[in-house]
């Protein structure tokens, strides 16, 4: 069959037209948003609420360390923490203890630059910790099924923090309360180091002026296997998957979250800002309440 040049050109034109339409649609779908980016630390943020034990027995004591950031704050922050039996947050209930009969105020106070060393550094890092006790089994396991008691009943912890500029952030986390043996309970993952180009970064070795491949030195035991009881009573063994969120005050990162041991790419600023310090923070989660933090500070001594 003979195909004339004219026909071929028509086909070419049609092809280009289709390609243009698809490109146009894809560009619309993937257009860059002007909304604030998750990774950028600017306003008051709670980055995580780290519990020393993410899964405990009834009646156990737990210490929680909030990780917050408010690089523009110069004076102080106020906070209040409350606890109660989880009203059903995973079912869509509002994460609040307001109407709960088990509501307890766990901690309350002010944070200033002398509260601890990290708060002195642009209010970015560990805030003052607080401890509390989980209700005993008669209370927290009341009317709960054997499956719930094995998989864990949640104790809700809410944390509200506000700054002098009128910003307020509410956060919550759940402490899992189960009757599993201690060695089967969830532990926080352990992140030993942040590596840049394969070299471990010390706490104040903030990279500058370049593009760096970042990775995490995660302890092998951090990828815990754990058991879940299914509705039919069967026990299923699962293995944790770790997800790391990256936060920065300057420069940019290629991915704002990375999975397992995946690396990330950090485009560092040329110099440190003169008015404040710079931070690179990784928050690694095991999706069961276990959390590990690493903070690299530029300009800290």
């Amino acid at each position: 069959m003979k195909i004339s040049i004219k026909k071929f050109n028509t086909f070419n034109l049609l092809f280009k037209l289709l390609l243009s339409t698809c490109t146009f649609l894809l560009n619309i779908a993937c257009s860059e948003s002007k909304l604030p980016k998750y990774v950028e630390l600017k306003d008051l943020r709670v980055l995580s609420l780290v519990a020393d034990k993410p899964e405990v027995n009834p009646g156990s004591s737990v210490t929680v360390t909030p990780i917050i950031s408010d690089i523009n704050e110069t004076s102080s922050l106020n906070y209040i923490a409350t606890g109660c039996i989880d009203p059903g947050v995973s079912l869509g209930a509002k994460a609040t203890c307001e109407n709960s009969s088990s509501k307890v105020t766990l901690a309350e106070g002010s944070i200033n630059s002398s509260s601890n060393s990290e708060m002195a550094e642009n209010f970015t890092g560990q805030a003052p910790s607080f401890s509390f006790s989980i209700p005993n089994s008669e209370v927290i396991f009341s009317s709960r099924s054997a499956q719930d008691q094995f998989n864990g009943v949640a104790y809700l912890l809410t944390y509200e923090v506000n700054n002098t500029r009128g910003e307020k952030v509410s956060a919550y986390r759940r402490i899992l309360v189960s009757n599993k043996s201690s060695d089967a309970k969830n532990l926080n993952p352990v992140v030993n180091q942040i590596f840049s180009q394969g070299n471990a970064l010390s706490a104040n070795a903030y990279p500058l002026n370049g593009i760096y491949t970042l990775s995490l030195g995660i302890d092998n035991n951090s990828f815990q296997s754990y058991e879940v009881q299914l509705t039919n009573g069967d026990i299923e063994t699962r293995v944790e998957e770790l997800t790391t969120t990256w936060f920065i005050t300057d420069g940019s990162v290629k991915y704002f979250r990375s999975s397992q041991l995946d690396s990330n790419e950090f485009t560092a600023p040329e110099t440190l800002p003169s008015t404040r310090k710079s931070f690179l923070i990784s928050v690694t989660r095991d999706s069961r309440g276990g959390i590990a933090i690493k903070r690299i500070c530029g300009g800290c001594n």
């Binding site: 709670v46 994460a95 919550y172």
Partner: peptide, 11 residues
Amino acid sequence: STFDSDNDVYV
């Protein structure tokens, strides 16, 4: 919104 520290999302 409320920050869910367990899952790293805002509700």
